[in-house]
Write a protein that binds this DNA or RNA. Structure first.
Length: 329
DNA sequence: AATTTGCGCAACCGCGCTCGG
DNA sequence: TCCGAGCGCGGTTGCGCAAAT
């Protein structure tokens, strides 16, 4: 813990607050409110800088603080919000009454990060850890990713990753596991955009098995928020990740509304942290030829993978509600 | 029993923004 | 328009305690 330069100049106290200091600050703010923090310090008779007083009040003395350990519901909400907002702790805290940004940040860094990693999820991207992205094609094939996601009948889930296990495990895993889905939201409107789900596929599992296993997973849990009603007319869209990010990104099958000229668009997900939660621009029909196109991936995932595995291309889009497949390497 | 290591959390740092003079 | 003070936020530090050695 360092000390503010103003504290040096004015020989102000640093470090932990004593109960007496807390009492002074609490008593003063309860009576008069805080107003200008630099004057609070003086008027309350504290040898502290205003900044320190503000922090102490916000993180500890405020009467509406909840305290105590985070419950599972709060933890889930933090993960969900973080997937859309990133490290914007103050915005996340605004959605958790009684919790401070500092508290949430500490909880994230000390607990949640670790838990996510244990589950094979990258805490930064909220996507499966991409440990095999640089390995050879055979290895990449085991990590084939299935992007979308949702059919007209509110069915179908997403995607695979790898793990070493018996082929038979995979079918069982998908069939019996109630997946922990996380919803992604539009950061502007707050409306749900899509869902992330990762299932673990054994490395020895054939892609045919994998495909059939996915098809057995057909029901959304009832807790998933309502999906936005798609408009009558749907327009395909494409968004462009940066050249570097496209090599390491994963897909979550997010839906997004386009701008006013495009009633609805859908893409294969978020490509890097900067773009997460943003509404991607809709590409005009006439501009499509300017972008790298993949083969139409309406066949099996296996075929799709074979078609695109050597292409350093971003992704493929389809009109809602067609599923598509994506692969990164 | 003494020492080391790891972890959680409170508090500080430093940057960028806003606002008033 | 410029400048400085104040504020808010995300990142970082280091204290204190418990577990491990």
């Amino acid at each position: 813990m360092g000390r503010h330069s103003c504290c040096y100049k004015q020989r102000l106290r640093k470090g932990l607050w004593s109960p007496e200091e807390d009492a002074k600050l609490l008593s003063y703010i309860t009576k008069y409110g805080h107003g200008c923090w630099s004057s609070v310090a003086k008027l309350a008779g504290l040898q502290r800088c205003g900044k320190s007083c503000r922090l102490r009040w916000i993180n500890y003395l405020r009467p509406d603080l909840k305290r105590g350990p985070f419950c599972q519901q709060e933890e889930d909400l933090i993960v969900e919000l973080h997937s859309g907002l990133g490290n914007r702790w103050s915005q996340i805290a605004a959605r958790l009454p009684g919790r401070t940004d500092n508290e949430i940040k500490n909880f994230w860094n000390s607990c949640i990060k670790k838990k996510l990693r244990q589950r094979g999820i990258d805490p930064t991207t909220h996507k499966p850890l991409a440990k095999t992205l640089t390995e050879n094609d055979n290895e990449a094939a085991k990590n084939l990713q299935f992007a979308p996601v949702k059919s007209n009948e509110d069915k179908l889930l997403v995607q695979s990753h790898e793990v070493s296990s018996k082929p038979s495990d995979f079918a069982g895993y998908l069939s019996f596991q109630q997946p922990s889905l996380s919803a992604s939201h539009d950061s502007c409107t707050g409306s749900p955009l899509g869902f992330n789900f990762s299932a673990i596929a054994p490395s020895s599992c054939s892609l045919e098995t994998l495909t059939s296993s996915i098809s057995t997973l057909t029901t959304f849990p009832s807790t998933i928020p309502a999906f936005p009603t798609p408009p009558a007319q749907v327009k395909s869209s494409i968004s462009l990740p940066s050249e570097s990010s496209c090599l390491t990104s994963t897909s979550n099958g997010a839906f997004s509304y386009g701008d006013s000229s495009a009633p609805f668009s859908w893409d294969c997900g978020n490509f890097d942290r900067q773009r997460q939660g943003q509404v991607h621009p809709v590409v005009e029909d006439s501009k499509w030829s300017e972008y790298p196109q993949l083969p139409c991936l309406t066949g099996s995932p296996f075929q799709a993978f074979n078609d695109i595995k050597h292409e350093p291309v971003n992704f493929q889009t389809f009109g809602f509600p067609q599923p598509c497949f994506q692969h990164m390497q």
